[in-house]
Write a protein that binds this DNA or RNA. Structure first.
Lengths: 206, 206
DNA sequence: ATAATTTTATAACGAACACTATGAAAATCA
DNA sequence: TGATTTTCATAGTGTTCGTTATAAAATTAT
């Protein structure tokens, strides 16, 4: 008796496109233009499918966007966050995180900046809840940084009188600013020199 | 023969609304929703006029936006930049600038964040040139900070081996990040503690 | 007064928006 | 084979977008 997944033959006409690859293209369009400015027409053109296929496979524009965001998080955010937990001090982890983010943000293959930061900053009231979801993702990123700093305090590589919450807000602010710098065309080198400056703000042991 | 301005009586039916006040309302709508997401319908509702009046007085949506940006710069940016040149050191000037910006960004009377940073970050290709104009304004702000730092170096209150360009990019990055923090609902106090941390990155004299 | 000029409100324009009804096409199931 | 199921491409739906044609209203110039 087999317990593993059942490779049931799909009834009906098979899909003529790769759902995952289409989602990848949609992600890039949303990343580049933002949620509201990316039109269904832009999306279907990039995905290589027609509107009915898009709606059959992904529901509607909002669900497609949210799925694209999940894909982005899985492909980028989670990998990047892992740098925080690399061997070494909290300071090294944060520095590494910032450096890797700056590389991703200026990658020629991708739209500039961070999708979570850029893709739903300003929008009409009809998509205010999308705005809130993205703000939650940004907040989650800040919490991850804060947790790493607090761990450093427990482990002794961060001064005991450090205000971890404030320091985490500061680095979140820098990351969000980096996104705009990247969008404006700043080079990886330029952003990294700003990171080096930001790291000067790391609390000194007395 | 008079050469000075002629206070000629305006022929035709007089305008029934205050052009300047209407522009103020338009500015706030663009500030809150961004260039593309602010619809003519949103604008006319806030301005208290009908579309034909809007087009007669301001040309079109793009010209109205650009005029609103100019108004914003005149009312906010130029005032804020002046803090850079207050008596005192470059460090004091930059710190004061950041603090005043954080107050403006979290002002309950206004939309959150900076209009120059927020209102045209992501948009479709049809308004790419608006994006570029806003990027230029951001660049001009960075240059103003850089100039102040270089003056501090000449006057001796900034260490001679400081890289003014890099330091200016860093503070621009922080300001842009502050905008997103404010948009996400951060309090003035929260942002100001991030500013205090950022100021720790100011170069020390050796 | 009457002509000239400008703004007003009403109502619409074509284009683009997100989205879908329809029926043919392509697969599996019985 | 014939019924069933799902996707496909075509061609639309109604709504909203930015924008404007039209004519009445309100002012100045003659």
């Amino acid at each position: 008796m087999k317990i593993i997944s059942k490779p049931v033959k799909q009834r009906g006409r098979p899909r003529s496109f790769d759902r995952d690859e289409a989602l990848e293209q949609a992600m890039e369009v949303f990343w580049r233009y933002g949620y509201e400015s990316a039109s269904i027409s832009d999306l279907t053109a990039a995905m290589g499918i027609t509107p009915p296929s898009l709606y059959a496979a992904f529901g509607n524009k909002e669900q497609l966007f949210l799925e694209a965001v999940e894909r982005y998080l899985a492909a980028n955010h989670e990998r990047l966050s892992s740098y925080l937990d690399n061997p070494g001090t909290a300071r090294e982890g944060v520095a590494r995180l910032l450096r890797e983010i700056s590389c991703m943000m200026t990658d020629c293959e991708c739209p500039k900046g961070c999708m979570v930061v850029m893709s739903a900053l300003n929008c009409s009231e009809s998509s205010a809840h999308i705005q809130k979801i993205m703000a939650k993702h940004r907040k989650a990123s800040e919490v991850r940084i804060r947790n790493r700093i607090e761990r450093g305090m427990r482990e002794g590589d961060v001064p005991a009188d450090t205000n971890a919450a404030v320091l985490a807000v500061f680095f979140s602010t820098v990351i969000e600013g980096m996104s705009i710098q990247a969008k404006d065309g700043a080079s990886a080198r330029k952003i990294q020199s700003a990171i080096d400056t930001a790291m000067q703000a790391w609390p000194q042991s007395k």
